[in-house]
Design a protein around this nucleic acid. Structure first.
Lengths: 233, 233
DNA sequence: CGGTGTGAAAGTTTTCACAGCG
DNA sequence: CGCTGTGAAAACTTTCACACCG
C-alpha cells in the first residue's frame, strides 16, 4: 500500500521541519513498546483508537503524534504493526544498535548490567567503569569492569555516544564532567542531583525517590487518575 | 516571617481548590531536592531566580508553581530554605514516613532494597516478596524475603499504601493485580509494560530502556554543536 | 463502513510585566 | 532596592470535527 501513495513525499518520511515537543517523543516510546507487544502476540494491524485505549490516550492524540513524523496509516484499516514499529524506531534512532558506557558499578549499576530490557530496544552496555580498585578487573554480568581513567580512550575508540551515571550523588557531577570530556553526547543520570552540563550534551534524569514522591502526592490528594503510564519528565 | 503576615490566608496553606498540573508536582520534587542540597551546604535563603537557574527554569515559573500551594516567600528576600523544604514535604506528603512493599526480588529488586535514596525522602521498603521458593526466607539488605502469598496480609497488617513492581514484564500485570487486591493505592512499575489498573489506583511507570530511547532521539536529532561564542548583535 | 490526516477551536501551561511589600 | 505574588498575554498542546479514502 505504501507503494500506491502519491509522490510528493515518501510515506513515512519526516516533514523534516518542526521541532517536535518532548512529550510527543515520550509517547512515541510508549506506542513502540505497545506495538512490539501486539506484534509478538500475533496482531498485525491496529487503529489509532485501539492503540490509544491501550495506553490511555485519545485516538486523535495518537494520530496527531504520528503526524509529526509522516503518514503511516491506511484509511479504513489502521496501521500495520510491523511498518509502524520500523517507522518509530527510525524516528527514535533505535533501528541501529547503541553501545552505552556505564560509570559506577555499585548495587544499582550491577543490576543494570544484567537488565535484559536494554537489549530488547537495541542498547547494549559496551563498557563499565569504576574508581574502586577492588572492583576494577572483576567481570560482572559478563562485563569486565575498567578503571575510570580508561573512559575517554574507550569512548573514543569505540565511538560511543551515550553514557549512564550510576554513582552516588556526591560523585555524579564529577562523573558527568568526565563523560563530557570524553565526548559523550547524551547522559542518563541515576544520581539524585541536577547536573550542570554544556548545552550540547543531552540528559535525562531518573530519580527513584522522586517517582515515589509523585505517588505519595497522588495518593495523598486522591488525585483523579489520568489512565496508564507516566512518561518521564 | 510567617507569623507577621496579614491574615486573609494562613501562609503556606493551599488554595485547597485547584487540580494542580502533574508537571508542576514533578517540579516541586526537583525544588525540594535542590533545596535540601542547598540547606545542607549552609545556604539559608534563596530567590526564585536562583532556584530556577539551578534547575533550568525561569523565576516566574518557580513562583507560579509555588503559588499553586500557597504563599511562602518574603518580598525583597526570597524564600527560607528550611520553611520551603517543610512546605514542599507537606505538599508531597513526605513529612511522614511511607512504608513500601516490593514485589519481585531479582537483580534490580535487590539493588533497590539497598538504595539509600529512598530513606532520604522518607520512604522505606517495609517488606519484599517473591514467588521463587529459593529466594523466600533469604535476608537481603536486611530484609527477609517473604512468599508472595503473604502480600495481602502484610499490606493489611502494616497499613501499607504504596508498592513497587520489580518483576519481569510477563509477570507484571499479575503482580499489579495482587497489589490491587491487597488494597495498595499507588504503584511504581519498573516492568516495561502498561498496567491495567482500577482508576482509583495511582501509578507511575519507570522504563529504563525508554529513558535511553529518549536520549537516542535527542542525540540523533541534535543540531550540530554550536560554536561556543555567539554574542548578540 | 471504518478509519486516517488535518485545520480550527478549546484548553492548558508558560512567560510577561507590574503593583506592592519589607 | 530586590524580590514576591499574580492577573493578563502569549505560546503551546489537546480535542474536535470533518473531508477524504479504500
Amino acid at each position: 500500500m505504501v507503494e500506491s501513495r502519491p509522490q510528493p513525499s515518501q510515506p513515512g518520511d519526516a516533514p523534516s521541519d518542526a521541532s517536535v515537543p518532548k512529550v510527543v517523543v515520550s509517547r512515541i516510546s510508549l506506542y513502540l513498546r505497545e506495538l512490539q507487544r501486539l506484534e509478538s502476540s500475533g496482531q498485525h494491524t491496529i487503529s489509532s483508537g485501539q492503540l490509544g485505549t491501550l495506553l490511555g490516550f485519545s485516538d486523535a492524540q495518537v494520530r496527531k503524534d504520528l503526524g509529526f513524523f509522516g503518514q503511516f496509516g491506511y484509511p479504513g484499516v489502521g496501521y500495520r504493526c510491523d511498518e509502524l514499529i520500523r517507522a518509530m524506531r527510525d524516528i527514535l534512532g533505535t533501528n541501529h544498535g547503541w553501545p552505552v558506557v556505564m560509570v559506577g558499578v555499585g548495587n544499582l549499576g550491577q543490576a543494570l548490567l544484567g537488565y535484559r530490557g536494554f537489549g530488547r530496544q537495541n542498547f547494549s552496555i559496551a563498557a563499565a567503569f569504576d574508581a574502586d580498585p577492588a572492583k576494577v578487573g572483576q567481570t560482572i554480568q559478563g562485563i569486565r569492569i575498567q578503571h575510570i581513567d580508561e573512559l575517554a580512550a574507550t569512548v573514543r575508540d569505540r565511538s560511543i555516544r551515550l553514557g549512564m551515571i550510576v554513582v552516588p550523588a556526591e560523585r555524579a557531577q564529577e562523573a558527568a564532567d568526565m563523560l563530557v570530556a570524553a565526548g559523550i553526547e547524551g547522559i542518563v543520570n541515576f544520581a539524585p542531583v541536577t547536573l550542570s552540563l554544556p548545552v550540547h550534551v543531552q540528559n535525562v534524569g531518573v530519580d527513584l525517590a522522586i517517582e515515589l514522591e509523585q505517588l505519595s502526592f497522588a495518593v495523598t490528594n486522591k488525585l483523579p487518575k489520568p489512565p496508564t503510564e507516566t512518561p518521564p519528565a
